[in-house]
Design a protein around this nucleic acid. Sequence first.
RNA 1: GAUUUGGUAGCUCAGCUGGUAGAGCAUUUGACUUUUAAUCAAAGGGUCCUGGGUUCGAGCCCCAGCCAGAUCACCA
Length: 569
Amino acid sequence: MALSEQELVRRNSLNELRKLGINPYPAEGYVVNVTASEIKEKFLADNTLFQEVSIAGRIMSRRIMGAASFVELKDSTSRIQLYFKRDDVCPKEDKTLYNTVFKRLLDMGDFIGVTGYVFTTKMGEISIHVTSFRLLSKALRPLPVVKEKDDKTFDAFTDPEMRFRQRYVDLIVNDPVKEIFIKRTKIINSMRSFLNDHGYLEVETPILQAIPGGASARPFVTHHNSLDIPMYLRVANELYLKRLIVGGFEGVYEFAKDFRNEGMDRTHNPEFTQMEIYVAYKDYNWMMSFTESMLEKIALDVHAKTDVVFEKNTISFKAPFNRVPILQAIKDHTGIDLNGKSAEECLEAAKSLGIEVDESMGKGKLIDEIFGEKCEHHYIQPTFITDYPVEMSPLCKRHRENPELTERFELMVNGKELANAYTELNDPIDQLERFEEQVRLAEKGDDEAMWIDTDFIRSLEYGMPPTSGMGIGIDRLVMFMTNNSSIQEVLFFPQMKPEPKKFIPKPEDFITIGVPQEWANYVIAAGFSSTKELKEQKASKVHQILNGYRKKNKLDIPALKIEEVEAWF
RNA sequence: GAUUUGGUAGCUCAGCUGGUAGAGCAUUUGACUUUUAAUCAAAGGGUCCUGGGUUCGAGCCCCAGCCAGAUCACCA
């Protein structure tokens, strides 16, 4: 790709700087004694402060008025205005540093370090009067220019494709984006300290697994060369964490990157983060209280209040949350009581509600469909939906009062699942049967391979204490806490299809096949991006095109002879 | 996977019934010593996503593809 005019200008500036003895990429660090936000916070109260500051950052805009200029400098905390005055920056005769280096060779996007003193301009803006400056790093690509006035943004950099592919540009130019990720880390830190305060141990378990268990999702497959076996990226870490409970830990948790080889959309990324926790001697009732107090704390840590605005709704994370058994939820929203009903009766109920069904659906599946279709979206405020049918929950203990149900809850927020928890199944014989049942179901459907993790069964055979486990989607939680409805907004680098590789033709390639030095660049400019492409044409045609190009652009080089061109083939 | 919208200058976007491609900002040159979407004057800048087709002629129409967004489906 040919460089744009602006890129060429900047590369020229780079050379000119070097000629002036200025290294555009100096090795040494730059000592800073203040940040932009510190100045803005404290200077108003006491304007004797900050009379010898040293600060570094990126130039975000420039307003040049002859011998004086204003620059907007952005450091990691904020933006602050700089005031450059020629005779202060260049006190002696030689004004090169201002006239040439600052005005002509620096650009928006460059990093500089400046020293000076803070003052307030006539317009009332806190600024730094610069006494000296140094180039710290030259930018060769122009940034998108985003301007603001009265909280209105002009020419915002909004193209999602570019924002996600070039997140660094997004972060430079769109200040609120940074806030999302600062909050993300706050949320994770808050959760981690809550878990640690309870004395639970943060652990790490394998991401690369021979058997991808713990959830029925399609895995990514890779290959181990020396073992010569397929390996899988984990879809969940549940089975490993439970092994650790077997091993004698009381409570273990992991912030896990999981990978699922399924569709991508506004709420699904192939890799995503879940926190899973398992605690011995607890049941799902305890886990509900634990989960709600954890979320309440996170909301307080992040927003200093329990009310969080998400889209059109205000969501209250104040504990306790409502608890509704799934059959009660269906009764509430459809008037149909499925308690104790047969599979046929459930099928009829689903049909009467206009839900698409097929005869192979079991009772559990039907209940899940009805809930998903008719109830789920009603639960805007955090609500624990409990006691799911046993078919849907192969790793969950049967309900102590009703063996068709399980001791499971899903936490619904804004009509979406945020967390999922069980009283864990620790009966190894029941567990094996449930796995086998899953395999049987999967074979019927035949679209997903299923694995039985026999080592996990073996671990249960040694005995696992009664345990409750919970998984919570961190990306979704961050979406709620930052009011973003797209998962891509809360991941630094959401998965995108690879950019098509732009082929960059090199003049040397053409020289190799015999194109004269002075012609090499023009051959590319004339439209031949590879030697192969050139050779696909007839020599006479190439001859014609190139001499046509020479004539059109009035090139000051001799025309090519047909024999010369033929020699390239 | 289906439907749908979009892809034009560094960025944000116009572009007529199909007839030599436009604006603002940015860039370059010049003026300007407290501006703030700075201002004023002039100039340069394009593989109109890619490949085919229709046409005397395609940014625009047709077909195929690529990338992205939205909606839906799938996801115990």
